[in-house]
Amino acid sequence: MAVEPLLSTRAQKAFVAIIAVQAIVVLVMISITFRSVAVADDITFNTPRYKTLPCYLAIFILAEVFEMLMAFDALRLRNVIQLIGILCFQAAMLVFASIQIHETRAALATHLDLWHKVEPFLIVSPIMIGLSWFALMWFVRELYHEFGWAIFHVVGANPAMKTMYQYYQIMICLLKLDFFVFIGVTMQLLIVVLEDDTAEFGLTVAAIPITMILLIMAGYAVQREIKSLMTISLVLMLAAQVYFYKLYRFYDPASEQTYLSTRATLTTFTIVASILLFATFGIGCKCFHDFDRGLMSSKMHGVTWGSKYLPSIFHERPGERFMADPKSSYTSGGPLDSRRLSIE
């Protein structure tokens, strides 16, 4: 069955366009806010009180770039699970943008004129993200139906295989979200609270490559079904939870002044990172349980837009017609109803 090239359908183009327009509007609004505060008298970003704005700008630059890459990746792989993950990510961005209004107001409490000047720009961001979120929901619904046939060709009509493949897709999506959240927490700590001549600064910097290696290792292990590497990854996921001792420091009377202007954002990111890591561990255990059950071929030869024909579990080569065995359990000797091939 032929597959349209990437971005060849109205729903795909609209999905990417919405994210691109949102990114431009939001980053322009944040940049105007940042510039207005940066040129104000008696305000310096070296003061912990005002570091919330450079932190806000850095996180949203990272978030918008990450979301765009996630969108192209989801469309390239025909991955409905990742599209749903993008909707969840969009909701998290909405919460973060709303929190930043409160934190910026607290930081500029002694500069009311400046606050009233930048307030409209701060309000535009969550409004734009919210509107984009509803629009993305509509087009995810269209893409859900558009990509349904692709999943069938990867794993067939066997419900058990389809369920295992969906858990695999959830695992990969969670690993990508873990990457963003961990980098987001680390970036905020580096910008907001740490001095570069402390041991804590060095440990925080070292956490970035360690986290990347852990997530890449877990993704490789779950795709190739390497049990030893997957076991190590799962153990390290549990060990990484000790990183969240910093929640205590955010509210410790001895250090809370350092975190005061960004405490709500850091707390939100840290809690979300911990929940995501636990979820990744749980789904990872389920994927580990599914190893050696005939799914690895589908993981290694998933759906992309580059081929004229979708790869299938029968390993057809581009240009060959998909021919199902009439006695196969997938078809039960009868024709398949195309209306039942979408992801349930």
Rank of each mutant, 00 (worst) to 15 (best):
R263K: 15
T280S: 15
M68R: 02
Y167P: 02
R224H: 11
K176I: 02
T262F: 04
D42W: 04
L215I: 14
T258G: 11
F250R: 12
A207S: 15
A221W: 00
Q22A: 07
A14S: 12
A324D: 02
I32C: 09
T104C: 15
Q100Y: 04
V39C: 08
E146I: 04
V118W: 00
M171Q: 07
Y56Q: 09
A279C: 12
T267G: 13
L277G: 03
A279H: 05
L277Y: 02
R224Q: 12
R35W: 07
M171T: 03
L215F: 06
I183A: 15
K227S: 14
H289D: 11
F45E: 02
L234P: 04
S338M: 08
L194E: 02
M171E: 01
I170V: 15
D252A: 14
S312I: 04
V124R: 04
L260K: 14
V155N: 03
M128G: 07
V39G: 06
L229I: 11
L214G: 01
L214D: 00
V39D: 06
I343W: 06
A239R: 08
C88W: 05
F152E: 01
D178Q: 14
H315C: 04
M29H: 09
D197A: 10
T9N: 11
G294K: 12
G85Q: 00
K299Y: 13
M323K: 14
S233E: 00
T198A: 11
L69N: 14
D252T: 06
K13S: 09
S261N: 13
T52A: 10
